[in-house]
Design a protein around this nucleic acid. Structure first.
Length: 279
DNA sequence: ATTAGGATCGCCT
DNA sequence: GGCGATCCTAATC
């Protein structure tokens, strides 16, 4: 019942304007969400895997490349930079794997950071994930209808916001998750660049909702991070002001947003910042 | 109990 | 570039 699974995911995403009748929902959904499209070969690990692979797991669905807790145990700024180029993987209930290379992040530093939810040491039920161990997800609802996905870093109340991905696999499912969820017009086809170029877009595209709050990215079976393939070159990184925090005074100016220079998958390009920081 | 505001998005001009 | 949607959360009364 792949179609129904996707419908349930869709309804969990908080889109109240989605009032399709039960009868018409399956028609809007894929006839084969369970298998990847022939145009999108599985990008999972090859049959020959690294020495760390457990003998109890085999095949492309194993977490052989899942980055462990050590990776996340670093301060927010270096972690935000280290995320760039790594691959975020989301495995849906039906086995579909959605994959995207992280190309844009923001660091939130904790109590001293006036733009952070943890500013002034505020700790509330909502932002508890920011204070949990590095690698813990902090997923929250914004503007009543969208989600943002953060990963706790070293440092009390510090975390990294994931802002944009380059879609690598499962694009057809991403398109469905994104378009089904959008209100209004049935129509317009989404460009690939519209799938994951924003913090809430990527949550929609990967079916990340509040049920992922406080999960451990180093341990979870439905979402994890894989190191970029060996041989990948270090991306050139631009440091720019963070987006959408105009109220935060001097903290709004600090270059705590990081993105891959020249990537067409980034949500907001900052030409001025690119001029300044010539590598 | 009430209220103000928000780490966004998509459509409009 | 501007604006409305939409409702949860936290702070205040």
């Amino acid at each position: 019942m792949p179609a129904r699974g996707a419908a349930q995911l869709s309804r969990r995403m908080g889109q109240k304007k989605q009032r399709l009748s039960e009868a018409e929902q399956p028609q809007r959904l894929p006839d084969r969400a369970q298998t990847l499209s022939p145009m999108e070969p599985c990008l999972g690990p090859p049959a020959a895997l690294g020495p760390q692979r457990s003998i109890y797991f085999s095949g492309p669905k194993s977490h052989s490349a899942q980055l462990g807790s050590e990776f996340f145990d670093q301060p927010a700024v270096p972690l935000a930079r280290a995320f760039l180029g790594q691959v975020l993987v989301r495995r849906l209930d039906d086995g579909t794997e959605l994959r995207g290379r992280i190309v844009e992040t923001e660091a939130y530093l904790g109590p001293e950071d006036e733009a952070a939810h943890s500013r002034g040491g505020r700790q509330t039920p909502r932002n508890r994930g920011m204070f949990m161990k590095p690698g813990t997800l902090y997923v929250y609802i914004i503007y009543g209808m969208y989600f943002c996905m953060n990963v706790s870093s070293r440092g009390d109340g510090a975390c990294v916001l994931l802002r944009a991905l380059e879609p690598l696999g499962g694009l057809e499912t991403m398109r469905q998750l994104r378009s089904t969820l959008r209100k209004g017009t049935v129509g317009r086809a989404l460009k690939d660049r519209e799938l994951c170029s924003g913090p809430s877009k990527l949550c929609q595209a990967l079916a990340i909702d509040k049920s992922f709050n406080q999960r451990d990215l180093a341990k979870d079976k439905a979402v994890w991070l894989e190191r970029s393939p060996p041989g990948s070159s270090e991306p050139a990184v631009v440091a720019a002001a963070r987006v959408g925090i105009g109220h935060a005074g001097e903290w709004a100016q600090k270059p705590l947003r990081f993105y891959v220079r020249g990537s067409p998958w980034v949500s907001v390009v900052d030409r001025a910042a690119e001029q300044n920081a010539q590598d």
